[in-house]
Write a protein that binds this DNA or RNA. Structure first.
Lengths: 224, 224
DNA sequence: ACTCATCTAACTGTATGCAGTATGCTGGCA
DNA sequence: TGCCAGCATACTGCATACAGTTAGATGAGT
């Protein structure tokens, strides 16, 4: 997600974002991109120097990530980025399957036409990124599509749980679709997904989402 | 949960718990018991005085709770206990239904006999608490049973998500089983639950868990 | 040369101090 | 009497300083 544009033309109220929040999102990005690898200790002073903040907001940001389960706090040794075992990934995908199944059924019955249209637009944009080989933009739109489908029913708890679990696997999924055939497969699955969603075919959407997650496991299982 | 006994006979290593963690659990309990009501601001200095700690560990504990979704951080106004709307409760219960259904199926197929026996023991203890009218102990055992069923398959992500959502509703559920008939109903449902679990009747267990959550909604919906 | 004890340095955990902002009150004005 | 401006207070956000612990390095002894 981009940082706030500092355009002077913006008329709305000035959004005052606490440093902790900003640091938290920055840290999340650093972990997803693998710049801070799994299992690495978060050296407070080093990160403070890198981000240009004091230890207090950094520590508070780290505590938020700990609450989200992205890092673990080891007494007297600080925080380490959570390392996912193969079983962790499989378990997380099992939970995601359950959550996405619930979301899919609700989305097909309760989702607004406008919301579905918006997802379709994201899909088209994603396909464009695929065509132009823009992996980072593709990845963000990909995540956005899944998040939007889950958000369609308007169930905040569902969105929260899905987001939290997803964020732990972001890095793996990010490096998971490297390689042309893997990528092409994922794109094809997404096309089918959109088709089911437009037709409000709940069970079809459930099936393709489950398949997508099963394939995701196949795509990432060798990367652990 | 009791604080560490400071018995000198304990031979094991001394568990050095950071203040932040201790404060975090204490805060969770304060919210569950309603001593800090929903919507209330967490006054840092007041809480510091009450708990006998400095502001730093308190703030870091609050940030963990924010990551867990138990409190919300309002810029320049500190933290407030998350207030659940009726829709929030309904949405959370829908997600819990999905998670518990997954857990039930896995528990019946993969759960160990020892684990099931342990849950049965907790159930018996809970019934004893019901008989002796000990609501607090009953509540804790009740929560423990549900948590243990979810934990039976050994899926850490599943446990985490269930716990996080459950913790937000703990207060409502705590005050929800006041009143003899409500309480009696919940007890009866629990009996059926144990019966299905012992028989490893997955679909039966799923059904009773769903019913239990639907009934929970009925029990608490007037309390918002 | 290898092992173990001791010491040192770095890092985390906690406390405190300072600055900025929101809120509530008081006084003046219409 | 009602309303608004200005002010005072209290609280949050951030920075820094101190204490305790862990881990690595260094040196002596075998």
């Amino acid at each position: 997600m981009p940082t706030q544009p500092s355009s002077a033309t913006t008329a709305g109220p000035i959004i005052r974002r606490p440093l902790q929040e900003e640091v938290a999102t920055r840290l999340r990005d650093l972990v997803t991109q693998g710049i801070i690898p799994a299992g690495a200790r978060l050296n407070e002073v080093a990160l403070c120097a890198q981000l240009g903040v004091s230890r207090t907001p950094l520590r508070e940001a780290v505590r938020m990530l700990a609450g989200e389960g992205l890092v673990e706090l080891v007494p007297a040794r600080g925080a380490v980025v959570r390392r996912l075992t193969l079983k962790d990934v499989a378990d997380s995908l099992a939970v995601l399957k359950s959550l996405e199944a619930l979301a899919a059924r609700l989305a097909c019955t309760e989702g607004s036409d406008a919301g579905i249209a918006a997802i379709e637009a994201m899909h088209d944009a994603m396909i464009a990124c695929y065509a132009s080989n823009d992996r980072l933009a593709y990845f963000k739109l990909n995540q956005g599509i899944h998040a939007s489908i889950v958000a369609l029913p308007g169930n905040a708890t569902l969105v929260w749980a899905h987001d939290a679990i997803q964020s732990r696997m972001k890095h793996i999924r990010f490096i998971g679709n490297a390689g042309p055939q893997k990528w092409a497969g994922a794109v094809a699955e997404h096309g089918e997904m959109i088709r089911c969603l437009k037709a409000r075919d709940a069970e079809g959407l459930v099936a393709i989402l489950q398949l997508h997650l099963d394939r995701t496991y196949e795509r990432v299982k060798d990367l652990i």
